[in-house]
Each structure stands twice: as C-alpha cells, then as structure tokens.
Amino acid sequence: MDVERLRAACLGLAGAYEDYPFGPEIAVFRVRVPGGAAPPGPGRIFALVRVEVEPLSISLKCDPALAVQLRSAHPEITGAWHLNKKHWNGVRLDGTLDEGMLRDLIEDSYDLVVSSLPAVQRAALGWLGR
C-alpha cells in the first residue's frame, strides 16, 4: 500500500483528519472530537505514519491481548516505536501483510479511540460500534 492509499484509508473514517505536530515526516491521523460546550481540542490519535521512510510503517492502537497475538503471528507487526508498546503496534508495510487486514487494523484502532468517547460524541460521529 502506498502513502496515498494509506492516507485515504485513514481519512475515510468519520471525523478523521491529518496533521503534522511532530514535523513533516510524521503524518498523524486523529478523530475530531465533536463539539460540546468547550471549544474542541486536538482530536484523539488513532494512527501515525512515517511518510518519507521506505518501506512505509504505520503505528496503530490495539487491544493489548490482540497486540500480542498479532505480533506472534506476523513478523511485520511489532511494538510501535516511541509509543506504549502495550497499546500500540507498529506495522511495516513491505507488501507482506494483506491490504484487507491492514484496513481492518486501521479500523480497529479508530474504533478503540472512538469507543472511549462519551456517548453523545460517538453519536455525533455516527459511530455505531463494530
């Protein structure tokens, strides 16, 4: 998967947006936390991509038990660099991992983040759970 298809997969999720708080080499994908009484702050991160490194890699949030299983079954999935390895996986995009599985991992990361939002914010995103 190239960077544009990866970007499209992340931005295709409700409320998702991209920014570069760590510099131009790391794309951060967040879910915008909808409205409320206070002005919304930065959204919650569900993916980080090192865009200028080959092969591409993406860091995704993951349930801790599933993270261990994925790492043992797929050598291209490891603990994410510079993130809490209990909750974040790093996925090397060298063509080994099936694109459908990668999309599922992106959606799972997004779902973990959105599921932690208050019900009113989940509803504003149109999120029904997966």
Rank of each mutant, 00 (worst) to 15 (best):
A8N: 09
A8W: 00
A9M: 13
L11Y: 01
L11A: 05
G12R: 03
G12E: 06
G12Q: 07
L13T: 01
A14L: 00
A14C: 03
A16V: 02
Y17Q: 05
E18N: 04
E18C: 10
D19R: 09
D19H: 13
G23W: 09
G23K: 07
E25P: 01
I26G: 02
A27S: 15
A27Y: 13
V28I: 13
F29N: 08
R30C: 08
V31G: 01
V33E: 15
P34E: 12
P34M: 07
G35A: 09
G36E: 08
A37H: 07
A37G: 15
A38Y: 04
P39N: 07
P39L: 11
P39Q: 11
P40C: 01
R44Y: 02
R44I: 02
I45H: 00
I45D: 03
F46N: 03
F46R: 01
L48C: 08
V51A: 07
E52R: 14
E52G: 13
V53R: 10
E54Y: 00
P55A: 02
P55Q: 04
S57T: 10
I58M: 12
D63H: 15
A65L: 15
A67Q: 04
A67G: 15
V68Q: 14
Q69A: 15
Q69I: 12
L70T: 09
L70K: 13
A73L: 15
H74K: 10
H74I: 12
H74P: 08
P75Q: 06
I77T: 03
L83Q: 07
K86G: 03
K86C: 00
W88T: 04
W88F: 10
N89D: 09
N89E: 05
N89Y: 08
G90T: 04
V91Q: 05
R92K: 11
L93G: 05
L93R: 07
D94Y: 04
D94I: 02
G95Q: 04
G95A: 06
G100M: 04
G100N: 11
M101H: 14
L102M: 01
R103S: 07
D104L: 11
E107C: 02
S109F: 02
Y110E: 04
L112P: 01
V113R: 04
V113M: 01
V114C: 01
S115T: 12
S116L: 09
L117S: 11
P118W: 00
A119P: 08
Q121R: 10
R122Y: 01
